[in-house]
Design a protein around this nucleic acid. Structure first.
Lengths: 155, 155
DNA sequence: GCTTGACCTCAAGTGAACTTGAGCATTTAC
DNA sequence: GTAAATGCTCAAGTTCACTTGAGGTCAAGC
C-alpha cells in the first residue's frame, strides 16, 4: 500500500485526498493546463505543494461561477518566476467580489419580486421587467448554464 | 409571410416570439413533456395560450436553479382538469423561496469569508468551513453546473 | 523479489439542455 | 394559384466538466 512519502512533492492521490478533488479531475485539470506537475523517472506525476492552493482556487472560482477557461486566464496573471504568495492569491480572488455582489443582489431581487410577479400575472418573459431580455439573457445557450442575471434596473 | 392569425391558439413561432424562447427549445420542451400542443390537420403544432405562462414558469424556474426534471415534477402538481389560475402558479413558485434563501445565504457567506480565507491561508478545501460539504454542494457534479453568474456585461 | 495498491495513457462515455442540418410539408398573403 | 415563410421529423452535434474503462506500468512494504 504505497502512500506518498515526501512531504514536498505530492502524488496525485495525495493531492486528491488533500483537496477532495477526484484524481480524474486533477488529471483533467493538468491536461487543461490549469495545474502542472513534474514526472518521476517511471512517468508518475509529482505535484508541488503550491498546487494545493491552485486546486483550491480553481474550486472556489467555480463556485463563484467562473468557467475553467476564465480560471485559466485568471491564473495566468500570477507571477511567472516565483511561487505566488498570499498577496497574489488575495488580489486574484478580490476580483470575485463585484461578481458576487451582483449575484447576491440579483437573487435578492428575484426573491423579493417573485410572488408579486406571479400574482400580478406579469409572468410572461417579454413583459415582466425582471425577465426582460434587454436586461441580458437570463439563461445562456447550451452547455453549463449561467443562471443568474444582471440587475433589473427599473422597479 | 404567414404569421399566426388566431389569438386563441399560437403557432410555435408565435409562442417563441412571445416568450423569447427558441423554437427548437419549445419543441424540445414538448418532447420532454413540459408543454403540450394540439396539431392541425397538416401536422403543425398549435399551443393554447396557457402555454405562455407555462413556458415563462419553466424559464424562471431554471433561473432559480431547477433542472427540467424538477420542473416537470413541479408542473405535475398543477390541477389536472382545469386551466391553472394565478393561485396555482403562485403556490408553485412559493416553493422556490427556501431555495432562493439558501442560495443567497450561501453566496453571502462566500463573499464575507472570501478574503479572510484566502488571507489566512486556509484556502484548502478540506479545512475551510466555507467549503464544507455540509453547507450543501456549491458545485454539482458533472452535467450542467448550478452556478451563479453575471452576464459578462462589459463597459 | 514479489505482491499489491497506486499510477499511467488514450479513447470513449455522461448528462443537461439545447442547436443544427437535411430533406420535405404546410400555410397564408397576395 | 403560387411564392416563400414557417413548420415538420429525426438523427446527430455542441458545450462543459468531468468520469469510466481497457490494458498495462510503477513503487514500496514485507
Amino acid at each position: 500500500m504505497p502512500v506518498p512519502a515526501t512531504t514536498l512533492e505530492l502524488t496525485i492521490g495525495a493531492l486528491s485526498d488533500r483537496t477532495g478533488v477526484a484524481v480524474s479531475a486533477l488529471r483533467f485539470y493538468e491536461a487543461q493546463r490549469l495545474i502542472a506537475s513534474t514526472r518521476t523517472t517511471g512517468g508518475q506525476r509529482r505535484f508541488h505543494r503550491e498546487m494545493l492552493r491552485r486546486v483550491s482556487f480553481i474550486r472556489v472560482a467555480q463556485t463563484v461561477g467562473l468557467t475553467l477557461d476564465e480560471i485559466r486566464t485568471a491564473l495566468a496573471s500570477l507571477p511567472e518566476g516565483r511561487t505566488p504568495d498570499e498577496k497574489d492569491w488575495a488580489s486574484l480572488s478580490a476580483s470575485w467580489r463585484p461578481r458576487l455582489d451582483q449575484q447576491i443582489a440579483m437573487m435578492q431581487r428575484l426573491r423579493d419580486r417573485l410572488e408579486r410577479c406571479i400574482g400580478c400575472g406579469c409572468l410572461s418573459l417579454k413583459v415582466c421587467a425582471m425577465f426582460n431580455p434587454e436586461d441580458g439573457a437570463a439563461v445562456r445557450g447550451p452547455g453549463p448554464r449561467f443562471v443568474i442575471d444582471e440587475p433589473v434596473k427599473r422597479s
